[in-house]
């Protein structure tokens, strides 16, 4: 059992408060990293709804992240749409793309979905760089966009404002995901993961629910992609390759499959491991480039072997043990 509702709510509020205070203590690059962690956490929330709760494998969520990023960049930079309209619009496009993409693949079991999404992840950078879309996507050189200023003359720097936008989005989306998984639909999603035949017998519309879940999950990735485009101020094809999609998978496995709180650990992990490797490259030279991949790979296998519930699951087990020993 998870901890009883009251301590969990307190914990969530404490984390939120800490995250709210953070931009007024940290500055510059740390603030940027903080925003990145929140952005990754949003993407991981989406992937975890799909993979953790509904048991569908996606190796291609980087593609939806890319659609969100490019959508937001094109809408703001080329069409002059304000960012707070552009990101929801782009994520709606992601919902549609996810729904449509999930539709054919979902009827044939998890493995085919893994294959199709893998293909999507590998093909995405090439499609984004396609010369036919140059006028919109800028080809291989990508699109630049303006970072947003704080509105209403609030005494906040651009970085602080951006961080707060990410924090508010992450909090709202977390809240939505939490409500979703404890609702009737959430129970149906979990039932489809664990007992698909029984769930369908009970009247769960498997195809519709699974494709909608795929769409929702793509929507989360799209919001994250849009925010990431704002935070970086730039989108280009190379940043949306297979490596990005696989790091999302690493994030939810490390944080804990089917754990919404765990995505924070996952996001911290996939934000800081490559950073760490960059710092080590001073001592190790070029071979430090191999470090994130090696750590990710070993952890994926180890997590499946000894810690299938991830960091969140391990913490829960520790809490349970200490509470019971009293």
């Amino acid at each position: 059992m998870s901890p009883s509702p009251a301590p969990r709510t307190l914990l969530t509020l404490a984390v939120f408060a800490a995250a709210l205070v953070f931009p007024f203590l940290a500055s510059g690059y740390h603030l940027y990293q903080g925003a990145q962690v929140l952005i990754l956490a949003i993407a991981l929330l989406g992937l975890n709804l799909l993979t953790g709760f509904n048991g569908q494998i996606s190796l291609g969520h980087g593609a939806f992240f890319a659609i969100g990023g490019y959508g937001a960049a094109i809408l703001t930079a080329k069409l002059g749409v304000p960012y707070f309209v552009a990101i929801p619009l782009a994520s709606l496009v992601c919902f549609g793309a996810g729904f449509l993409f999930g539709f054919p693949a979902l009827r044939f079991g998890g493995l085919y979905l893994a294959l199709a999404t893998f293909a999507l992840a590998v093909a995405t950078p090439q499609i984004l760089a396609y010369r036919g879309f140059d006028a919109w996507t800028g080809g291989s050189s990508g699109v630049s966009l303006m970072k947003p200023y704080a509105p209403f003359a609030l005494p906040l720097t651009t970085d602080q404002w951006l961080y707060l936008v990410c924090l508010i989005s992450a909090a709202l989306l977390y809240f939505a995901a939490r409500n979703l998984v404890v609702s009737r639909i959430g129970r149906a999603l979990i039932a489809l993961r664990d007992q698909p035949v029984a769930a369908e017998t009970m009247g769960v519309n498997a195809a519709l629910l699974k494709t909608t879940c795929f769409g929702m999950s793509a929507l989360y990735a799209g919001v994250a992609g849009g925010l990431s485009a704002l935070a970086v101020g730039f989108v280009s094809p190379e940043s949306f390759g297979l490596a990005l999609s696989l790091s999302f998978l690493v994030g939810i496995v490390v944080g804990g499959l089917a754990s919404l709180g765990g995505v924070l650990f996952g996001a911290l992990f996939i934000e800081f491991v490559p950073n760490l490797a960059d710092q080590m490259s001073v001592t190790f030279g070029e071979s430090a480039k191999a470090l994130p991949g090696a750590i990710y790979g070993v952890l994926l296998i180890l997590a499946m072997a000894v810690m299938p519930a991830g960091v969140a699951g391990a913490l829960r087990a520790v809490v349970r043990r200490t509470v019971h020993s009293r």
């Binding site: 494998i57 998890g110 071979s287 480039k289 470090l291 991949g293 790979g297 499946m304």
Partner: peptide, 24 residues
């Protein structure tokens, strides 16, 4: 005997390890 999801994750882990090893 693990579910498909676990096996796919393990295979991806293997792929990442070999890629990193070759680069290293």
């Amino acid at each position: 005997k693990a579910p498909v999801l676990a096996s796919v994750i393990v295979f991806i882990g293997l792929a990442l390890i070999f890629n990193a090893l070759a680069g290293w």
